[in-house]
């Protein structure tokens, strides 16, 4: 994608705090994602990556701070409102509707097409397009039950289901966790394919090598605070951060 001007900011997060019950998990987290970017939110387990995503989605009750999606404040809204405003969420544990077929899973995620503020159409997805992107899903047929799929296939379905909402930005939580290396590689290909179609992605990741394969920039989270932000090249060069906070 070529932009004459710097690409507009999709997501702006400022001073985000979140709590699980009485436990304070996120402390003044701030970052941004621009249109067309793939940004990695990195950090080890328990650093607060999934909590950040859940907080952005409005799934945690106790939260504070500003979250703007294309300039609109979404911080106080309910999960369904946030999803309807164009933020897509792919959870870490997939959460496929196992009693529903592939086609029905996609139907649940369906939302109307969107347009960018400049009135150009945002990426629009149909089951057919998704089947083309994920031939595995097509092979199984639309009537296969979600529960009768392997972990890797479910991972593709959960991404497709979120894409059916035609989101401006997709939150992709730990796509490489707990799946075989060969599937991890497929995930990397998928992310790059989505990026080429104009989808912006914020992904959470522990695996530096995976993140380096797919993302433009990274933020590193540790104990609920942002400790580093920069391009992937800067991260690769920063031995200190890598050793202290990441999987190397």
């Amino acid at each position: 994608m070529i932009h004459r001007e710097p690409p507009p900011t999709l997501l702006t997060v400022e001073g985000l705090n979140a709590w699980y019950g009485a436990a304070h998990i996120l402390f003044d987290v701030g970052f941004e994602v621009k249109r067309g970017e793939v940004v990695a939110l990195m950090g080890r387990n328990g650093a607060g990556k999934s909590t950040t995503f859940k907080t952005l989605m409005g799934l945690l009750e106790r939260r504070k701070g500003t979250v703007k999606l294309m300039g609109q404040d979404i911080s106080g809204r309910s999960p369904s409102q946030i999803a309807r405003m164009g933020l897509g969420f792919v959870p870490e544990d997939r959460r496929i509707f196992t009693d529903l077929t592939i086609a029905e899973n996609l139907e649940v995620g369906r939302q109307a097409a969107r347009r960018w503020p400049d009135d150009s159409p945002a990426p629009e997805w149909t089951p057919q397009k998704l089947y083309d992107l994920f031939p595995n899903l097509k092979e199984m047929g639309p009537d296969r039950l979600g529960g009768r799929m392997s972990g890797g296939e479910q991972q593709m379905l959960t991404v497709s289901r979120t894409l059916m909402g035609n989101p401006y930005l997709v939150l992709l939580d730990e796509p490489s966790e707990g799946v075989a290396p060969v599937i991890v590689e497929q995930m990397a290909h998928m992310i790059l394919a989505l990026k080429s179609q104009g989808v912006s992605i914020l992904l959470s990741e522990q695996n530096v090598h995976f993140a380096e394969l797919v993302s433009d920039r990274a933020y590193v989270l540790e104990k609920g605070q942002i400790r580093f932000s920069g391009t992937m090249a800067e991260l690769a060069a920063n031995e200190e951060v890598r050793r202290s906070y990441l999987t190397v």
């Binding site: 060969v182 991890v184 590689e185 497929q186 090598h209 995976f210």
Partner: peptide, 16 residues
């Protein structure tokens, strides 16, 4: 073929 793939996502740590 069935498991490692090309090894891109884990090769480096092993080498290191």
């Amino acid at each position: 073929e069935v498991y490692f793939g090309t090894g891109k996502t884990f090769e480096k740590p092993v080498a290191q």
